[in-house]
């Protein structure tokens, strides 16, 4: 599992693109989703990310599986949105009912509107799109390519290398996490408790050893990198495959830029707003 969330050259057209073009794709998706909150538009955006992944040789099932671990967090955000987000004009909104009725002591009654539900589903899709696009970027851009790309874009070489090594470190941490979970499961560690606070506490036996081991691994990795000349003379580092923009890079960059412009325009024009789906539902 750990090294599934790492760059792997699957030999597709996406893998052959210049890393800067792939960064542009990622940027176009994420800037667009920041300006949208309509679930229908966001579902299409998420679908486009899955499709991009498929072109990059990553099966739908693999991408869907990698979203599973974030589902508890996404569900938490969904519940929090339903509980706290209100339409700008509640008087004109469509009330479904109340969470915790009048008779429940201590807890206030929480109104739930159709608009809240639609907006919350949009937020959920936003989060999934955000996570999936990052995962696909990591799986399709080699960390060293990424370092080179950001350096070409004017970022100091030290920061570029640090960024690439941070990405390379992700699978190491996932590997540590798996080992820790197996060790604790062997001592009957279980998270299947209903109380959310107890559930949160149940992750302490995983979090502490993972943090401790990851910290050790980070130190060892830093020593290994320095022992292989990391930071020795960054300005004169040899580049075996210098980056070069080809025709297909220009074409893809053009398409992603157009998508970005259209996406942001739809967002700022208020078209990709949750009211769009609400309207379709006759609300």
């Amino acid at each position: 599992m750990a090294y599934e969330v790492a760059y792997q050259d699957r030999g597709t057209i996406i893998h052959r693109l210049d890393p800067r073009v792939k960064l542009l794709w990622w940027l176009s998706i994420n800037v667009t989703l920041a300006t949208w909150n309509d679930p229908l538009f966001l579902a299409l955006l998420l679908g486009s990310v899955f499709a991009y992944g498929r072109v990059a040789g990553i099966p739908f099932a693999e991408n869907a599986r990698h979203l599973l671990p974030v589902l508890p967090f996404v569900a938490f955000v969904l519940v929090a949105n339903i509980a706290f987000w209100r339409p700008p004009d509640p008087a004109a909104a469509n009330l479904i009912g109340h969470l915790f009725g009048e008779g429940v002591p201590v807890l206030p009654a929480i109104p739930v509107y159709w608009e809240t539900l639609i907006f919350s589903v949009g937020t959920l899709l936003r989060l999934l799109t955000l996570v999936l696009s990052a995962l696909i970027l990591i799986k399709t851009v080699s960390p060293s390519e990424l370092a080179l790309a950001v350096v070409k874009m004017g970022v100091p070489p030290e920061i570029g290398m640090a960024l690439s090594m941070t990405i390379a470190y992700i699978p190491v941490v996932i590997g540590q996490l798996t080992a820790v979970m197996e060790a604790q499961q062997s001592r009957a560690w279980n998270t299947k408790v209903s109380n959310p606070i107890a559930r949160f506490r149940a992750y302490v036996p995983i979090a502490i050893p993972t943090f401790f081991r990851s910290f050790q691994a980070a130190e060892a990795m830093a020593s290994a990198m320095m022992s292989r000349g990391f930071g020795y003379d960054v300005d004169n580092r040899t580049e075996l495959n210098p980056l070069r923009f080809r025709r297909r890079d220009w074409a893809a960059a053009g398409a992603f830029t157009a998508a970005l412009v259209i996406g942001v325009s739809l967002g700022f024009a208020g078209i990709a707003k949750y009211t769009f789906t609400a309207g379709l539902l006759g609300l």
């Binding site: 060293s144 190491v172 060892a220 990795m221 990198m225 000349g229 020795y232 004169n236 040899t238």
Partner: peptide, 24 residues
């Protein structure tokens, strides 16, 4: 585990040599 941090064997091997600016 902590000595290998590049995405491919080839990139792993050339990492140090590139850092030291050896000729291509």
């Amino acid at each position: 585990e902590t000595q290998l941090f590049n995405p491919t064997v080839e990139e792993e091997i050339v990492f140090g040599a590139c850092n030291y600016g050896l000729p291509v």
